[in-house]
Design a protein around this nucleic acid. Structure first.
Lengths: 239, 239
DNA sequence: GTATGCAATATTGTGGTCAATAAAACGAGA
DNA sequence: TCTCGTTTTATTGACCACAATATTGCATAC
């Protein structure tokens, strides 16, 4: 008999069944993003497995995924190491992020229709409510959401994925940065400026505004990582 | 006694011990890059494990790594699926790649010293030998090497990693593209132009040249993926 | 001939076990 | 008290077995 066809790919994500591995992958990802796992020290697989109530096999699969994502490092026979926080890496990521956002903006100028742009504007204007009393944490999430929505307008899936990955890795720093921000209005207005440029399809101008907006000074990066490390250390003491 | 310190991170990669997982990870990565695994069909873990002479446990860890890298897709209870080849994704990756290369170039203009730039020039000039008789495969590798070296001059590790990842994913397409190239001199000369711009620290001009150089037309992308799919299909019959 | 439900088969998911390796603790000698 | 080498302990590496799930094959009904 002729060889029978193998199983073809299932229909793309109707609804997610969410396996064990994917569940704990998300959980561990959140932990590393928030530096709840000691950076720079090997993490104990058995301990973590027990905490998550799974065995080491699926745990290691989840950890493996995080390796290529840059969340963890892996040393043979030594184990998985949560990433450390250093200003070189932060600066590097900021540089890449700025240029990717710039690309997203330019593509959005070309590809997004007015309705979609209107949606972005409405989203950000709706964030005006209680804006000044928001915690830095919440503000960071809304800011991130704004940028994600902008990126979606580019209609470039790969670009979106990379930006989301970078955003996750620098979220901790972003929060610290926003906390130290005295006045928040500039940030709010800059987003509106970006939307305005988008509406005018002003690729060059908008991109300039955006990349300006996303820049992180070396001094700020160093200060933020210093503060971040201190906070991680403190958290450890207090429990 | 005070709580003792946990194991700190080992000295950064003196030489790599290369564990089993990392070994097969690289092997499978190559296979997917070259589409030696049926795209769009679930791959059989037991079979592949036997072929690589390992058990399923380390195999699945390696496969998991490739998921976040975009090389494989994972569907719970269905298994791992080698990625398919579609022109939307190819175009997306090309767009991102162009802008990242542009960034690398600009950073290199600022950060690379003359000696390093000289090294890049010498590397590419050394590629002149037998240039026209090189296989598309070999040419693609040298081209990729050139771009990697350029990216290294940016001194941005994250950027370098992302570019390497993207390059791997589009290598197959690159080769097809290079094959259909009638005359190769333009490509060779463009690289020299880029080096020249770098030597002159001409950020804007060089970036323009570079992004021009890296562009892929929609038509070419469609043609290349079509050809690619045909080739994969053909290989299956004959091989 | 097509469809539907059930049985048989194949494949993935996960826990357990033990070997290999690294880290820690210990002890002898200087 | 420090250093070096040895023993002990802890942790990771990987195979296997079986459970959970999906896929295929088959038979019966319409």
């Amino acid at each position: 008999m002729a060889p029978k066809a193998k199983a073809e790919r299932p229909q793309r994500k109707g609804r997610k069944p969410l396996s064990t591995v994917e569940r704990i992958y998300g959980a561990i990802r959140e932990m590393t993003i928030n530096y709840e796992l000691k950076p720079n020290a090997s993490l104990n697989e058995s301990e973590l497995a027990a905490r998550l109530d799974v065995s080491r096999t699926p745990l290691r699969e989840a950890l493996s995924r995080l390796v290529t994502e840059g969340m963890l490092e892996f040393y043979p026979n030594r184990g998985f190491f949560p990433r450390t926080l250093d200003d070189r890496e932060v600066l590097d990521l900021y540089e890449v992020r700025a240029v990717l956002e710039g690309l997203a903006f330019e593509l959005a100028c070309v590809r997004a229709d007015n309705a979609a742009i209107g949606g972005l504007r409405r989203y950000w204007e709706s964030c005006r409510t209680n804006y000044d009393s928001l915690s830095a944490q919440k503000l960071a999430l809304r800011d991130e959401e704004f940028h994600v929505r902008l990126a979606k307008l580019s209609e470039n899936t790969q670009l979106l994925k990379m930006l989301e990955s970078i955003n996750a890795r620098i979220r901790f720093i972003r929060v610290i940065n926003l906390e130290s921000l005295g006045k928040r209005d500039p940030l709010y207005d800059e987003h509106l400026d970006i939307v305005a440029a988008l509406e005018k399809r002003d690729r060059k101008g908008g991109r300039r505004t955006l990349e300006q907006h996303m820049r992180l000074s070396v001094a700020d990066a160093i200060a933020a990582t210093k503060e971040g490390l201190a906070r991680i250390h403190l958290r450890r003491r207090t429990g």
